[in-house]
């Protein structure tokens, strides 16, 4: 009897969560998956098949955009790691205890402003008549106005700025748990700064590092506003293709196919990344 009531309460407890997963995540994904397998054979007539996928493969511009998105997302993830690690290390290990909460909050401030407003903020700074361009002219560094928007570098900077926070948070929480005595032991046993960093700090931070990389990569690859607003027509971001198929062309079948492909491809990249670094989800993200 006891175990039955235990089971019942477990079921009741899990029910809202399960409903949420099923209704908001699983069902739409199944729906998208189903739509992507419909072939249009005539007006209002559909058959199940892989025609949408073969169409994708047959059009280089589509899969080139997907590859480009993945490659730029990897770059953004890497840059976010390079920028985020020192910040996280400073917050977790060097800053005084009392300053920590404040610094952490400072990192969170950009989140209080919506994506859209932040992107427009960048536009105000970087456009031809923007603050950066006019200051440079005023200082005499350049003679005419320069357009700093609509190129890959700007898109990458904007994306790193948007996602770096999601790299910092997991890193801070893992590094926070690291005992200073461990670093001192590393030096005491003869390690140089570099050795201690490579053999003690990085392996220790690995769970947070992998979690941060996965989150930033997924967020970047799936982002829409920043690449479109900062990159303009040239951005060739894969989410833009999805948007076009759904909204502009009203081709839901192709849009759904692209959506499934984006999810599958980014998951594949994450999996390859985990394999290459010898990690697994169980030993990193799910740890602790």
């Amino acid at each position: 009897m006891r175990s039955d009531t235990g089971k019942l309460s477990l079921i009741l407890l899990m029910a809202p969560f399960a409903l949420w997963i099923v209704l908001l995540i699983a069902l739409p994904q199944f729906g998208i998956g189903y739509v992507s397998l419909r072939e249009k054979v005539g007006p209002g007539e559909y058959e199940l098949g892989f025609a949408n996928y073969t169409a994708f493969l047959g059009e280089p511009i589509y899969w080139n955009t997907l590859l480009r998105t993945a490659w730029m997302s990897i770059l953004v993830t890497f840059l976010a790691l390079v920028v985020g690690f020192p910040v996280a290390y400073y917050i977790a290990k060097i800053a005084r205890k009392r300053a920590r909460a404040g610094l952490f909050l400072l990192c969170l401030i950009p989140l209080w402003v919506s994506d859209l407003v932040r992107a427009f903020g960048w536009i105000v700074l970087l456009r031809e008549t923007g603050i950066v361009s006019s200051s440079l002219q005023w200082m005499g560094v350049i003679s005419g106005p320069v357009e700093l928007l609509y190129n890959d570098i700007t898109v990458i900077i904007g994306l790193v700025y948007t996602v770096v926070l999601f790299m910092i948070v997991p890193l801070v929480s893992t590094l926070d748990g690291m005992d200073d005595a461990m670093l001192e032991a590393g030096y005491n046993l003869g390690g140089s700064r570099f050795t201690v960093f490579r053999r003690i700090i990085v392996p220790y931070a690995m769970p947070g590092l992998v979690a941060g990389c996965i989150i930033t990569f997924m967020l970047t690859a799936g982002s829409y506003l920043t690449p479109i607003l900062l990159g303009g027509k040239n951005s060739s971001w894969f989410t833009e293709q999805i948007y076009n198929q759904f909204i502009t062309r009203y081709n839901w079948e192709a849009g759904a196919t692209f959506g499934v492909l984006l999810l599958a491809f980014t998951s594949l990249v994450v999996w390859v990344g985990l394999r290459l670094t010898g990690q697994s989800l169980a030993t990193t993200v799910a740890k602790e």
Binding site: D179, A181, E184, Y187, N188, L189, G191
Partner: peptide
């Protein structure tokens, strides 16, 4: 510290 030939057993050992 890493050039001194004294080694230390820490209070909480600090094994890696």
């Amino acid at each position: 510290p890493n050039k001194r030939n004294v080694k230390m057993v820490f209070q909480h050992l600090a094994l890696f």
